[in-house]
């Protein structure tokens, strides 16, 4: 079960032309949040919004569809979204918060909900957690360095970044430059090396490009909440679906990459344990399923 527990796996994309234009892939996160806001399933959402600096995201409380759309698209650097939950609940007074999280952030939220030691009246305010697939994350300076050094592009001229087909892609207004994803190794943050979760296994709905053709996302519906919201969004026509390809470029690829991330992480976890370094997860020898996120 390298993809975690899920009720449904499918390809999906937003039917909204504007979202299609600005989103990274299928625009699932954007479409779901906009839909949930319209339907009052959430009354605001924490997203990785724009900051004063190009490509440096800022955790933001989005109160309108415009705010949500302003945060569309992937930024390959750190955005501590969980931090902004406090503002969303305390300053903005939101009762039903949506949030977009990468796997580690999903884990922080779920731990807080099961064990809210110092977190008063926050656990019950998370109405929808949309998880996104994540292989690893880059500190901002790492990102800036390898974009300028390897793609030879001025950071400010970049219009879109993307990872796919084994390459890191940099789009500018009139050019598309790529270099092998392998060349980004060494730039990722170290904390990612013990991460056992590619697909946000604990989110309500997870989405990502791996296993999906261009302009579509592979979506996994996981919890009861996720199922209800996703079904509503599909029934309302906000999201269109098509079955995921079982083969080499579909489910097989998603499974293979999830497994490979787990195997690499388990190697690091076991090495760390052998050195006596702290790590919150069990060693291979301590667990039934050596690839489980425990």
């Amino acid at each position: 079960m390298v993809l975690g527990t899920y009720k449904q796996i499918t390809l999906g994309r937003s039917t909204d032309k504007q979202i299609q234009k600005i989103s990274q892939d299928g625009g699932i996160a954007t479409a779901l949040l906009c839909f949930a806001l319209d339907e009052k399933i959430i009354d605001g959402a924490v997203v990785a919004g724009p900051s004063d600096e190009m490509w440096k995201p800022m955790p933001t409380v989005a109160m309108t569809s415009d705010d949500i759309m302003a945060a569309a698209g992937t930024k390959y650097t750190l955005s501590p979204n969980n931090w902004m939950l406090k503002q969303a609940v305390r300053q903005y007074g939101l009762e039903k918060v949506g949030i977009v999280t990468i796997p580690c952030q999903t884990m922080g939220i779920r731990k807080m909900q099961s064990y809210p030691f110092g977190v008063r009246f926050m656990a019950d305010k998370i109405a929808l957690d949309i998880g996104i697939c994540c292989t690893e994350n880059f500190p901002f300076e790492s990102l800036r360095t390898f974009i300028s050094a390897k793609a030879g592009v001025d950071f400010d001229l970049v219009e879109k970044m993307d990872i796919g087909k084994g390459k890191f892609w940099v789009h500018t207004q009139d050019d598309v430059i790529s270099f092998p994803i392998k060349e980004t190794h060494g730039y990722e943050q170290n904390g990612c090396k013990v991460c056992l979760d590619l697909v946000s296994e604990l989110s309500d709905i997870s989405t990502g490009s791996i296993g999906a053709p261009d302009d579509w996302s592979a979506v996994q519906v996981r919890t009861d909440i996720g199922e209800t919201v996703f079904k509503k969004a599909v029934d309302a026509g906000a999201i269109e679906l098509k079955p995921i390809d079982e083969g080499k470029f579909g489910l097989e690829m998603l499974t293979r990459l999830a497994k490979s991330k787990k195997e690499k992480a388990m190697k690091v976890i076991d090495e760390r344990k052998a050195m006596g370094l702290p790590v919150p997860y069990k060693a291979s020898s301590e667990k039934e399923d050596p690839l489980a996120n425990v």
Binding site: N82, K86, C104, G108, I109, N137, C195
Partner: peptide, 20 residues
């Protein structure tokens, strides 16, 4: 000491959210 220095921090922001 126990998270950042040990190469475990991933910058999720849960600590800053939890700080009372």
């Amino acid at each position: 000491y126990k998270v950042v220095n040990q190469a475990l921090c991933i910058g999720c922001g849960t600590c800053a959210m939890a700080c009372q």
